[in-house]
Amino acid sequence: MDTNLKKEIIMDHYLNPKNKITTDDSRYVKVNTNNESCIDNLNFYVLFNGDLIEDIKFDGEACAISTSSSSIMITNMIGKTIAEAEEYINNFEAMINEEKYNSDILNEANAYDDIYKQNNRKNCALLPYKGIKKAIAEYRK
C-alpha cells in the first residue's frame, strides 16, 4: 500500500472514527483498555449475539494511531463470528510483530503494516485489539 494512501486512511478514521460513541445499554460487554507506557485510555462496548459480534462502540481519549486503529477494527469486525474475529486479530498482531500473516483479510488495517518502524507506536495500533480480546474473554465467562 502506498504511504500516502496509508496516511489518508489513518487520518480519515482518526478524524471521523466509526462508532466513537458511548452507550449505557446493558446488553453490551464493556471493557477498558489502556497502554501502560502512554496515555491512551479507551472503553469498548461489544454486543454479542450467540457466536456473532453484532456491534462495537468505543469512547475515551487516545492518539491518532489508537483511535484510527479502533475505528478500522470496528469497521472490519462487526458481523464477524468470534472465530473469524480471532483469526483477524491473530493476523493483525502478526503483522504488527513482523511475523507471517495473511494481508487479504485485514483490509484497511494493512495501513499499519510498517508501524513496526516506530516501536513506541506499536502498542497504540494494538490497543483496540487488546480491548476486543478482553471483551471476548469476558463474554465467554
Partner: peptide, 21 residues
C-alpha cells in the same frame, strides 16, 4: 490534536517534550 500525537511529531525533529497527565 491529542497531546501525544504532538509529542511524537516534535520527536521527529528531535525535540523532547512530555505528553500526558
Amino acid at each position: 490534536i491529542f497531546s501525544q500525537d504532538v509529542a511524537y511529531y516534535l520527536n521527529k525533529y528531535n525535540v523532547c517534550v512530555r505528553a500526558g497527565n
